[in-house]
Amino acid sequence: MKEEFQAPQGKILKINGICMSLEGDDIDTDRIIPARFLKCVDFESLGDAVFEDDRKDFKGKHPFDLKTNQSASILIVNSNFGCGSSREHAPQALMRWGIRAIIGESFAEIFYSNCLAIGIPCFTLPKKKIKSLQDRSREETLFFEIDIKNIIAFEKSIAHHLELKESSKNMFLSGEWDATSTLLNNIELIERKINELPYINLNKLRIT
């Protein structure tokens, strides 16, 4: 059994964990969490359902079912991971299964911003390096200590230089990935904005 779920909170400086590989391009959010599991009013029970249909197909040999992966928390994926539906249920399901960081060739845009908003960094690496890590993580236990400030994954004496958008990095380091309070700090600017938008204030627009 997995440890009790704890969502990321506050500043995220380091993520340590075992890597697991999930191969495939264009893995969409319908595959990560099939639509029937979206019939819920909270995210709590999603962890067990992650990749449900793919896992059935693999009959126990899917990466999320392999014994060796059960304590993994860093997922290594290929390109355009998380494409399709905007459902935050997808990263929520991964997070509730135990994933705390993802390293991939590339990510779909909405998936990336959903991960950012719940405190899951999505790092990128070139295709060749991903392939090498995926191959190795199948053969041996890869334990990474990811230093977010320097964007480096330390593996014993090896330093893997990852890539992460500067703005995302800053948000993880400051805790502002949990954006609500930062946004509300600017409430006066928001109120000024609503009073100057033409379509909200058409009666104030002057016709030339």
């Binding site: 249920h89 909405i110 609500t180």
Partner: peptide
Amino acid sequence: IGTSQVRDVLASQTLA
């Protein structure tokens, strides 16, 4: 947008 951003828009009418 995802659900966390829906929360932000409800709370502030803005998002990052």
